[in-house]
Design a protein around this nucleic acid. Structure first.
Lengths: 244, 244
DNA sequence: TCAAAAGTGTTTCCCTTACACCCATGA
DNA sequence: TCATGGGTGTAAGGGAAACACTTTTGA
């Protein structure tokens, strides 16, 4: 079903979408003590890009962003934050798209709607890595996680977009308590601390971290977790959302 | 000259601009111990709106925002922060624009480019009130300051945009030290404190405020100011920018 | 001499930091 | 019983809050 939507997008030749306007998503996940970003790859050309899409004529901008992330992750109820609209003229670079279209058997005319200048309203998404099913499509036949520390060269200004997304994520970490969206439902305190340390790029003091997070009153202690390790079993915690 | 640009904008019938995309500016000023916002009024209809404009085909998005603010204030080198892109479908409401166009002698067809759906990339601007020359134009024949606490009813979702701008301004106040852009070059500490109190909507302790701001190392004491008041003369301060 | 506002000093309080100590567990 | 990692106790440090005090000025 998602494949069908994507097909529709690329084949309607601009009809049904707002022109000159795109939505790009920096989808963050956390696994193996690493922050990951979901990237698309055009295999025939080797070009990497952020997941993105366009806005339907009667669709809310934020809904378009959620749809784009849903199509690539097979998730719903996604945590999204809009963080910047990228609109420099020189971000407009039709070359990679021309290459991709040519490689896919489409001979693009210069006034093809995909080759026009686009402004990108960018969002970051925080998802539970374990629940994501990366979904490629016909054109983007690669869709996979990449370590944030090891991102390949990306199309247009997409590297800049990722850098700005990380800055926004760091700023929101304490204010909006966004980190829990990157965790599974239950987690240990040290797993959470590792996530914080990875996002912030620095080590934190264990006692201070524990007390600070518990003092927020948003964590519920569930049960002990027997890890099999030769040490005290850690507690599992669960995030208490507002509507509980 | 500015009037000419505006004329061009409204008469080219959409040619030369990116379609469906607008820039709106919440221009903040500070005067008489009040935060002010610069609003446009369509006098023939009484409709109020934020200053706004469109993006030229080869113009950077941020440059378009600066141009819009320049056209309304006759300033250059404007402090601008992009804070949100408003893109809900139901913000699209062609009625007020139809009314305005009709009142100006233009019978708009339903597919007129101004009556299409627009997404607004919104900025707030911080300007020195004393240096602004409000610049109306042919269509918007009113351009004047309004107390933030007493904003009239606005077109479309412009009230929401102002509320979000104020939230963003408050968040940036400590992090980005934006307040100085609202002050004249030289100011007393109590004037600055009043500005902070107005933005934050709460009173601050005088000794704490003085120490905190001085400890930042970004203020230079200039000279004493004789106010004529029956009290000690306050110092004047000046903001020390990076490039000094 | 007094009132008003500006500038500075000082104490208290609280949160963070830093480090120490105990607890549970498997080898 | 020892090493390892988890949880908690506690003292030191730094900054903000609260209030007092001094200074300067015109009436």
């Amino acid at each position: 079903m998602y494949r069908e939507q994507r097909k529709e997008e690329t084949e309607t030749a601009g009809h049904g979408f707002m022109p000159g306007l795109a939505v790009d998503a920096v989808i963050f996940g956390f696994h193996d003590q690493q922050l990951k970003v979901l990237l698309m790859q055009y295999k025939k050309t080797g070009i990497f890009a952020l997941p993105g899409g366009f806005i339907r004529e009667k669709e809310n901008l934020n809904d378009a962003a959620e749809r784009v992330v849903s199509e690539r992750t097979a998730l719903k109820d996604i945590y999204l934050e809009q963080f910047y609209a990228f609109g420099d003229y020189d971000r407009y670079d039709p070359k990679p798209l021309k290459t991709i279209m040519t490689a896919n058997g489409v001979i693009p005319e210069d006034d093809h709607w995909l080759l026009q200048r686009f402004i990108s309203v960018s969002y970051y998404a925080l998802v539970d890595f374990t629940k994501v099913v990366p979904m490629p499509d016909r054109i983007f036949d690669g869709c996979a996680w990449y370590d944030l520390a090891n991102i390949p060269e990306l199309m247009q200004d997409h590297s800049l977009i990722i850098r700005k997304a990380l800055t926004a994520l760091r700023a929101d970490l304490d204010n909006k308590l966004v980190a829990f969206n990157l965790m599974p439902e239950e987690f240990t305190m040290s797993e959470l601390q590792t996530l914080y340390e990875t996002i912030l790029g620095k080590n934190l003091l264990r006692p201070a971290f524990q007390r600070k997070l518990l003092s927020l009153g948003i964590l519920e202690r569930v049960a002990k977790k027997w890890t099999g390790g030769a040490h005290k079993a850690p507690y599992l915690y669960r995030f208490i959302s507002e509507n509980n």
